[in-house]
Structure formats: C-alpha cells, structure tokens
Design a protein around this nucleic acid. Sequence first.
DNA 1: ATTATCTATAGATCTATAGATAATGC
DNA 2: ATTATCTATAGATCTATAGATAATGC
Lengths: 186, 186
Amino acid sequence: MRYPKEHKDQTRRRVLEVAAARFRKDGLDGVGVATLMGEAGLTHGGFYSHFPSKEALIEEVFASGMDASTLRPESAWDAEGIESFIERYLREAHREHPEKGCPAAALGSEIHRHSKGARAAFARKLEETVTKISGLLAEPDEDRARAIFSLLVGSMQLARAVPDRAESRRLLDAGKAAALALAKGK
Amino acid sequence: MRYPKEHKDQTRRRVLEVAAARFRKDGLDGVGVATLMGEAGLTHGGFYSHFPSKEALIEEVFASGMDASTLRPESAWDAEGIESFIERYLREAHREHPEKGCPAAALGSEIHRHSKGARAAFARKLEETVTKISGLLAEPDEDRARAIFSLLVGSMQLARAVPDRAESRRLLDAGKAAALALAKGK
DNA sequence: ATTATCTATAGATCTATAGATAATGC
DNA sequence: ATTATCTATAGATCTATAGATAATGC
C-alpha cells in the first residue's frame, strides 16, 4: 500500500505492545498470532512480514517490548528509596494487573522453556533490575539485590495464585516485611 | 474389559502421575491429553472415562498428584532443620528437574489463570508448606515462613530462566544466604 | 510501481464425544 | 454380560506460507 513512510514501523511497534500485554496476561502459550494481530487491528497473515516466527516476537518482547509499562519495576525507580520501591512492587494494583506489570512475576515459570534468545534477553533485563535495586541499598550489594527481587517475584506470584483475598494480602504483607528486613539487613 | 478389580484405579493413578510430571516440565498448557495418555500407555479416547475434563485433571494434580515427588519441599521435611531445608530446595538437582520438584516453582506464574478449584487446591498445599516451614523456625512465625517460601520459589524460577550458568548459581546462592538470614533473623 | 496488508489454505494439534472392541468374571 | 480401553471423528485453534489486493509515492 505504499503507506506513509513509517507506517510499517508503527504497526510493528503496535504488535509488540499488544504482545507485551497479552503475553503477561495469558501466558506465552496462551495467546496466538491471530489474536495478537486482531487486537492490533490487523489480520493474521501479515504477521510474518514483521517477525519470522512467534518465537522471534517473544524474544523481541523480552528484549524491549515490556519497558514502557507503568507497573514494571523500572517504573518505580523514581521512588525515593528501597522502601517505596518494595511497596510499589507489592501493592494490590500490581497484583490485579499482570498485563502492565513485572515480566518476571507474570511469566517467571514459563521462560525456561523458551529459546536461548528469549532467555538471554530476559537475563539482561534481570541484571539491569538487580543493578538498580543494588543501587538503592545503603551499601550496594548485588547478591542482596538478587534475593530481594526473587522475594518480590515469588510473593507476587503466590499472591496471584491463591484465590482467598485475605491469604493473598498476607503473602504480600509478609513479602513486604521480609524484603524491608533484607534491604536494611545487618 | 472387566479387568482385575482395581485395574481402572491403577490406570487413573498412572495418568495422574504422568500428568504431575509433564505439567511441571512442559506447563499446564504445554502438554495435551493425548500425550499424557500415550505416556501412560493408553490412547486418548479413554481419558474422559477417568476425568470429566483436562481442567478436572489439573485440579486433581494440584490436590494430590504431586505429593510423592522426591524433590517436593515436603520431601525435605526429614531435614534436620531450616538450614538443610533451604539448601535442599535451592540445590542444582532441583533446578535441573522441575518435573520432580516444587509445583510452585514449576508452575507459579500459570496457576492464577486456572479454575478456582485448581487454585484452591494449590492454596491448601501452600498453607501446609507454610505451616511446616514455620515449625522449623526457632520460634514459629507463619508470615516469616510465607516470605521464606516466596524467596525460595522466586530464586528457583529466576535460576531456571537465566541461560548463563554462573548467573544462575549466583541467584541460587544469593537466595540461600538471604533465606538463612530471614530464618535466623531477629 | 511499490509494498503493507489481506484472503485462503495447509497441515498440526487440541479438547471432547460416540460407538466399537476385546478381555475377563459370572 | 460387563466395562476399560480403543477407533474414528467433529470442530476449534495454532503456526506458517503463497499469492491477491489495494493504497499511495513516483
């Protein structure tokens, strides 16, 4: 259609955005190419002129597609310190909206089944997160940061899995208290 | 076929066992009824005389199908104390064998998308685990136990997701140190 | 004339159902 | 005669491909 110069780039970005949300909401296996393209306002046939395969899309989503989300850990870096970071991560708004939230919490147990490219892209983002958490500590400690992030991811997943609201809250609160203890920790 | 009295029960148990392993290895969406039945030595058509649906099988697997696995947290209860429990959970053998390991680590981010029955069954097992971990602490504390378990689950998932072995080890070790700190922690 | 997108389709796979088959207890 | 399992199939859905269509820059 010889559309305006950057038309295809815009479409591509739109597909990435839709995929980033739907993958976190429904799982990497839980949503198909046709659904993603449909939500981007297109038909499924055009997908393969943008990406060579669904797995390639997954790799790109891990590499860059989930950066803009308002609930990602990174979006909390403007937090004043580690305390408010932890509180932002473990709040109920995050629990209710995996599609806008942390990729590790939304997809943690699925990632290891995917391509090395996808896992490497995830690992790069994880290291960024670890570095940033470390920087929020009184004295930087990347291993401490790894543990704090693991605790946040685990707490959020269990809080989402459990159907009872009271128990879900308890998991969030227990995670919060322990993460704070680790952050200040001796 | 009027097989020996308990033939059908045995088959049913076999299907549950196969499902418990394959679900943890490939994900709840990653393996189909035909594959499970095939691995149990049967054809797919007979599945529905044992379970009304795949989701019903998932519920049963969460309720009881994963109890016998050698790497489940519960299998480490003969551990002398909290330290050896933590070390057993976060060892590399567990990382390499999700199919025999902790259901929360293997399926954590998928559970919330399934039936209330499946989630409730998972929650019951989680509460058992929390109680048992609490009992291993110097003074029982269920919220502390929730946080410790969340940390173990998160650490294991991230260690599995990351492709680099050195980084994976670091995640396990960092989780171990922090879990021990939480366990002893003031 | 170019090319982003669409239409149509192939070939796998998935959950689920209906009715046939076959093996053993009566 | 009973019934656990098998065969065959329906109807969805999935990834991927090939070639047609249509909208705009030249």
